[in-house]
Amino acid sequence: MSVVVSFRISRELKEKMDKLKHINWSEVVRKAIYEVIVREEARMRGKDVERIRRAALRSRELLRRVERWSSVEEIRRWRERR
């Protein structure tokens, strides 16, 4: 299903568009919007990957700070309590 989206352009730009009647301006606008969306989504995915990488590094730093603690021993201790 389609929806109508409107926007303003300068009178000068509209006059230039009118001179180029052989161009499907609706298609040009659709393609331009699609390209911006694809580019921005890729950029956002890159940011998500960077946030995940930073979080992983931070969690490693936090794990190193705990001294005299062994995850293996902790799991054993909890299993023995059952």
Rank of each mutant, 00 (worst) to 15 (best):
W78T: 02
A56W: 08
E12Y: 03
E27Y: 11
R65H: 09
D18I: 01
K14G: 03
I37A: 10
R76Q: 13
S71E: 15
K31Q: 14
A42W: 01
G46F: 06
R30I: 07
S6K: 04
I52E: 15
S70P: 02
R79K: 09
K19T: 08
E27G: 07
E80M: 10
E15C: 02
V36F: 12
R39M: 08
E74R: 01
S6F: 03
R76C: 09
I33W: 02
R43F: 13
I23W: 00
I75C: 04
M1C: 04
I52R: 06
R64E: 13
V4L: 08
K14C: 00
S10I: 01
K14D: 11
I37L: 10
L63M: 11
R53S: 13
D48M: 10
V49D: 14
E73P: 00
I52T: 11
L57G: 13
W69H: 08
R45C: 09
R45N: 15
S71G: 08
S70E: 09
V4P: 07
A42V: 09
V3A: 03
A55I: 12
V3E: 12
S6T: 05
W25Y: 13
W25H: 05
E12K: 02
S2F: 12
L57H: 08
R51L: 15
V5L: 13
K16S: 08
K21V: 05
K21R: 12
R54K: 11
E67K: 06
R11M: 10
R54M: 10
R53Q: 12
R54Y: 04
E12S: 03
W69L: 09
R53A: 14
W69S: 07
I33Q: 05
L63T: 01
Y34C: 14
E41C: 10
R45P: 02
R8A: 11
